[in-house]
Computed example of a mutant assay.
Amino acid sequence: MPENSIDHIDFNELNKKAISQPLVTHMYTADPSAHVFNGKIYIYPSHDIDAGIPFNDNGDHFGMEDYHVFSMDSVCSKAVDNGLALHVDDVPWAEKQMWAPDATEKDGKYYLFFPARDYEGFFKIGVAISDSPTGPFTPQPQPIKGSYSIDPAIFKDDDGNYYLYFGGIWGGMLQKYRNNIFDTKNELPKPDETALMPLVAKLQDDLLEFSEEVKQVQIIDENGDLLLEGDNDRRFFEAAWMHKYNGKYYFSYSTGDTHFICYGIGDNPYGPFTYTGRILNPVVGWTSHHSICEVEGKWYLFYHDSSLSKGVTHLRSIKVAEITYNDDGTINTLDPYCESDSVVME
């Protein structure tokens, strides 16, 4: 049992202290990407299952096979399961591990962006299309050319351009790429070297391919220097997300092994983004993955934890909590259980 075991946690008491309760209880869901389409909330999570694989740093125990879309009339209403939206068996190029997805709308069509491992063991990002925000979605026969790694997040800017953010280290394989080229000899930078950065590319008008070469998203510190690999409390790990508030671009992400949701602020969708602070302190469970969505003039953080499964890392549940901004545009940090210092990670 690891030193930071969760055995001592009283989950009944922890759930009483939680700032929100699971939105879905009949299955395990994670990595919620939330959007408002036609006045209704739609959540695109991954669907956790017990794949029977022991925990490892490559994330093989996250053996998700399909997606369900959930809809809500308001943040206080019941989350409705709209059934199977897409299964890995329906994707010609994908073998397994349908990890965190996202979705968007354009001209009455809905586009689901999702990562999966292909039959050579590489993560790629695919696109599937539907006439309904709930699916079912029809996948394209091939992944997006030039895509790799995990955690796609689609952002529509005010000028109508769409950008796809993605990337994740360890199981997401980002550490094996340099300048968009894979090499098995590549590893994580040394602690005093620049950290690996997330990725972004503008999409073509049909949203099916990149319209430009994939670029790095730069996250810098207060002095304008790129964050270092050893800065584990601030550097990017996975779970990219973009939203816009008062004309500024907010790039948020997970720090992975230190379990924070952090953010930086920039002046354009490419960055650089100056590290600004934390949105969410650690939750129960190893991962932390989120989205941020405006609903009826208020802003909400959609996230997950493993409290419903009593700490089982790969069996998570999606939640929602309101976030608030200060006059200077900073976001007030949320403590997921009010007394978060008592929470340890598996």
Rank of each mutant, 00 (worst) to 15 (best):
K185R: 12
K176M: 09
F302Q: 06
I219M: 11
L227K: 10
T138G: 13
L208I: 06
G256F: 01
F251E: 02
Y249W: 01
T25N: 13
L203S: 07
Y245G: 11
M72C: 08
Y250H: 03
A94Y: 04
T324S: 15
T330A: 12
K78I: 07
F123D: 09
Y165L: 09
A128R: 02
D157R: 02
M1I: 12
A103K: 03
L174F: 05
E193H: 11
A103S: 12
I331L: 09
P152A: 10
M27D: 04
G171F: 00
G266H: 01
Y337D: 01
I53D: 11
E339C: 14
N38I: 04
D231Q: 14
A195D: 00
S46L: 03
L164N: 03
D48A: 13
E339L: 13
Y148M: 08
P143H: 07
G224T: 06
K96F: 13
N12V: 15
D157K: 02
W170A: 15
F55R: 13
W299P: 02
F166W: 06
K310D: 06
A153T: 08
I49Q: 11
E346M: 11
Y263Q: 04
I331Y: 03
P92Y: 07
W241I: 07
V88F: 06
L188D: 01
A128N: 04
K17M: 14
D90A: 09
L199K: 13
E296W: 03
G146L: 08
P45R: 00
V24R: 05
G271N: 06
D267G: 07
P272L: 15
I265D: 12
N246Y: 12
G277D: 10
D192A: 14
T324N: 15
N332C: 10
N186S: 13
Y110P: 02
Q97K: 11
L14Q: 07
D73K: 01
N38C: 08
D107K: 00
I49P: 12
V343G: 06
E346F: 09
R117T: 10
V284P: 05
D57E: 15
C338V: 14
W299L: 06
M72F: 00
A18I: 05
D257E: 15
Y110D: 12
I6C: 15
Y325S: 10
N4R: 10
F122I: 05
D157T: 02
E193P: 11
D90R: 03
K109Q: 13
P54L: 10
I220H: 02
D328P: 01
V312H: 09
T274E: 14
V295Q: 01
D31Q: 05
G59N: 08
I181K: 11
I129A: 07
Q142S: 15
S149T: 11
D118N: 09
G52Q: 09
M72N: 05
I154A: 07
G224W: 04
Y163I: 03
I331W: 02
S291Y: 00
I41S: 03
